[in-house]
Computed example of a mutant assay.
Amino acid sequence: MAPRNAEQEKEVLEWIFQILGEPVPSGSYEDILKDGVVLCNLINKLAPGSVKKIQTRGTNFQLMENIQRFQAAIKKYGVPEEEIFQTADLFERRNIPQVTLCLFALGRITQKHPEFTGPILGPKMADKNERTFTEEQLRAHQAELSLQMGYNKGASQAGHGGFGNTRHM
Rank of each mutant, 00 (worst) to 15 (best):
V24A: 00
K10A: 00
F91G: 07
T59Y: 07
T59A: 08
Q71G: 12
K45I: 02
K52R: 04
A47G: 02
A143Q: 13
C102M: 06
K52M: 02
L39Y: 03
G49F: 09
R108T: 12
K112L: 14
P48E: 09
P80M: 11
L101N: 13
V38T: 05
T117F: 08
E81I: 04
R131V: 10
L147M: 13
P123C: 05
D31C: 01
K34M: 00
E14N: 04
F61H: 14
K34L: 02
L90V: 05
R93T: 00
Y77R: 14
Y29C: 01
Q18K: 04
V37Y: 01
M1Y: 03
P48V: 02
K76V: 14
S28Q: 01
I43W: 03
T59D: 07
N95C: 07
D35T: 04
Y151W: 13
Q8T: 01
H113F: 11
P80S: 08
V79G: 08
F163T: 09
H168G: 15
F163C: 14
S146M: 08
H160I: 15
F17M: 00
G162F: 15
I109R: 14
F91R: 03
Q8H: 03
R4Q: 02
E65D: 04
Q18S: 05
N95R: 10
K76E: 15
Q62G: 05
K75L: 15
M1A: 06
G49S: 05
Q148Y: 14
Q18W: 01
G78W: 08
E83W: 10
A155P: 13
F85M: 12
S156Q: 11
E30N: 02
G159Y: 15
F163N: 14
M64E: 13
